[in-house]
Amino acid sequence: MPTDWNAANAADEYLAAADALDWLDLGYRLVFDALDLDHPQPGPVLDYGCGPGQVARYVADTYGHQVIAVDVAPAMLDQAAAHPHPLVRLHRVTDQALPFLADGTVAAALSCFVFVEQAHRSTQVAISREVRRVLRPGGRFAVLTTHPDSAGIPFSYFQFGEPGRSYQPGDAMTTRITTAQGSLVLQDYFWPVEVYRSALTEAGFVDVSCQAPVPPHPALGRETTPHPPVLLVTGTAPGPAAPGDPNTH
């Protein structure tokens, strides 16, 4: 079964684990660079699957963007609301829909370790379609996930999948995050690289690409391994970019 983020203490345990291992070491810097958040862009940034809100607050503090942070779990949103930020707006998502956002109103979007939690590829496509709807033409969408080719490989702070096991698309896959606070066990699903890529393509994104950085990479913190811990998939909403947009192709 998928991880129940509304179960007793689930959100608290996730926040404690993320803080203990320094969540930026999970590859989030790759996302910020891919979205070129250093440059002003018209419109807010969408954080789809914001969890307890650390990423949204970091983007607001570091880059000065307004952030629309959304999640399916009320317990996660409660965690985020406990640390309010003047540039962060919180919303709950149901059925992958963003009815509170009009078409083409978001400058950039990110979704980190959300697609790997989906038991069905169709949900990944539905999320991608809704993100494309709200992105302005030329806006970028960045999806960060654990790298499927490294299933079963022990990293310094986490392991997804069991050593020696061969996974098929959609198979349930346990992820363990280990910190000084203890071990957090999550229920994820195995999806090959091409599934992540095709979800964005089917949703209508263009210029879809994948990156699989291998440590030592400055965005991957303290890892020292020949295996790629994470996969970054990016796509562009079709149509002409806004004048002066640094992402103009």
Rank of each mutant, 00 (worst) to 15 (best):
residue 9 N to F: 10
residue 11 A to W: 02
residue 17 A to R: 01
residue 20 A to N: 03
residue 20 A to I: 02
residue 21 L to I: 13
residue 23 W to L: 13
residue 27 G to V: 02
residue 29 R to D: 15
residue 32 F to Q: 07
residue 32 F to E: 07
residue 32 F to D: 11
residue 34 A to P: 14
residue 34 A to Y: 12
residue 34 A to G: 14
residue 34 A to H: 12
residue 35 L to N: 05
residue 37 L to Y: 00
residue 41 Q to D: 08
residue 44 P to Q: 09
residue 45 V to F: 03
residue 47 D to N: 06
residue 48 Y to C: 08
residue 52 P to A: 07
residue 52 P to F: 00
residue 58 Y to M: 11
residue 59 V to F: 00
residue 60 A to C: 07
residue 61 D to R: 06
residue 62 T to H: 13
residue 64 G to H: 07
residue 65 H to P: 02
residue 67 V to E: 02
residue 69 A to V: 04
residue 69 A to C: 07
residue 71 D to G: 09
residue 72 V to F: 13
residue 76 M to H: 13
residue 76 M to Q: 15
residue 77 L to Q: 07
residue 78 D to A: 13
residue 80 A to G: 06
residue 82 A to M: 02
residue 83 H to W: 08
residue 84 P to S: 04
residue 85 H to F: 00
residue 86 P to M: 05
residue 90 L to G: 05
residue 93 V to W: 09
residue 95 D to N: 12
residue 95 D to P: 05
residue 97 A to G: 14
residue 98 L to I: 10
residue 99 P to V: 12
residue 104 G to P: 00
residue 108 A to V: 02
residue 116 V to E: 15
residue 124 Q to L: 03
residue 125 V to G: 05
residue 126 A to E: 14
residue 127 I to D: 05
residue 127 I to P: 01
residue 127 I to Q: 01
residue 129 R to E: 14
residue 130 E to A: 03
residue 133 R to P: 15
residue 133 R to G: 15
residue 137 P to I: 08
residue 139 G to T: 04
residue 141 F to I: 10
residue 141 F to S: 14
residue 141 F to E: 13
residue 141 F to V: 12
residue 144 L to I: 09
residue 147 H to L: 06
residue 147 H to R: 10
residue 155 F to T: 05
residue 155 F to M: 09
residue 155 F to E: 09
residue 156 S to A: 14
residue 157 Y to E: 08
residue 158 F to R: 01
residue 159 Q to H: 04
residue 162 E to A: 15
residue 163 P to Q: 06
residue 166 S to A: 15
residue 169 P to R: 02
residue 169 P to N: 06
residue 170 G to P: 06
residue 171 D to Y: 03
residue 172 A to I: 09
residue 173 M to I: 09
residue 173 M to T: 01
residue 174 T to N: 05
residue 174 T to K: 05
residue 176 R to K: 08
residue 177 I to T: 05
residue 178 T to W: 02
residue 182 G to R: 03
residue 188 D to F: 11
residue 191 W to F: 09
residue 194 E to Y: 06
residue 200 L to R: 02
residue 202 E to I: 11
residue 203 A to V: 01
residue 204 G to W: 02
residue 211 Q to W: 13
residue 213 P to D: 10
residue 214 V to R: 04
residue 215 P to G: 10
residue 215 P to W: 03
residue 216 P to V: 08
residue 216 P to I: 06
residue 218 P to T: 14
residue 221 G to F: 05
residue 222 R to V: 08
residue 225 T to S: 15
residue 226 P to Y: 08
residue 228 P to L: 06
residue 228 P to W: 05
residue 229 P to R: 00
residue 231 L to C: 14
residue 232 L to T: 00
residue 235 G to Q: 00
residue 238 P to D: 12
residue 239 G to Y: 03
residue 239 G to L: 02
residue 240 P to M: 10
residue 243 P to K: 04
residue 243 P to A: 08
residue 247 N to D: 13
